[in-house]
Design a protein around this nucleic acid. Sequence first.
DNA 1: CACCCGATTATCT
DNA 2: GATAATCGGGTGT
Length: 201
Amino acid sequence: MYTPIHKAFYERHPTEVARDLLGALLVRKVNNEVLVGRIVETEAYGGRDDPASHAYRGNKGRASVMFGEVGRAYVYFTYGNHYCLNVVARSFYEKAGAVLIRALEPLQGLSTMIKNRGLSDPLNLTNGPGKLTKAFAIDLRFNGIDLTKRADLFIAKGKLRPSEKIATSTRIGIKDAKDREWRFFVANNPYVSTLREPLVR
DNA sequence: CACCCGATTATCT
DNA sequence: GATAATCGGGTGT
């Protein structure tokens, strides 16, 4: 049914992986139910050469996952409330990297997502990195798991529709390296996070 | 051990 | 547009 994306897909520069993940599917199995969302917004993060990345300060602490095997989940906790989901991605020549999943278009299991979020508006269920992890019941238990195998959480093949175009901007919520246009999203898709335009200084 | 702050969100005005 | 909430991780003493 849902075909996992192979590990080799993630062994490329995070910006390439981030762009190509648009249209792919996030699949979550929980309590005999399947939740599915199309990825419509991502951001790429590098290693020691990217001041905005958790991996900037080296292979230690929570960022160690970003130095490990590609195709694995990097989940971190932030702002005292929220979990963010990344998939480790980097080319053969890079030491660390990941792609942050920032927004999904919910496809299947909407009623459970609504319950998990305590909201009913489909447009507000998964349009942000902290929102989608809550809707999909993703927390630190998933940190480090393999997203290339059928399991409780994985990423499956999926494509953009013919009419859909890819837009880019600088990354959201960071202080450094604001010149890099490393955010990728589906243009005019109503499920992207509310901050849609490039940050202005 | 103290301090600071964040790859965010909800809830105001 | 502005800001409070909230707590683990990172940094430095």
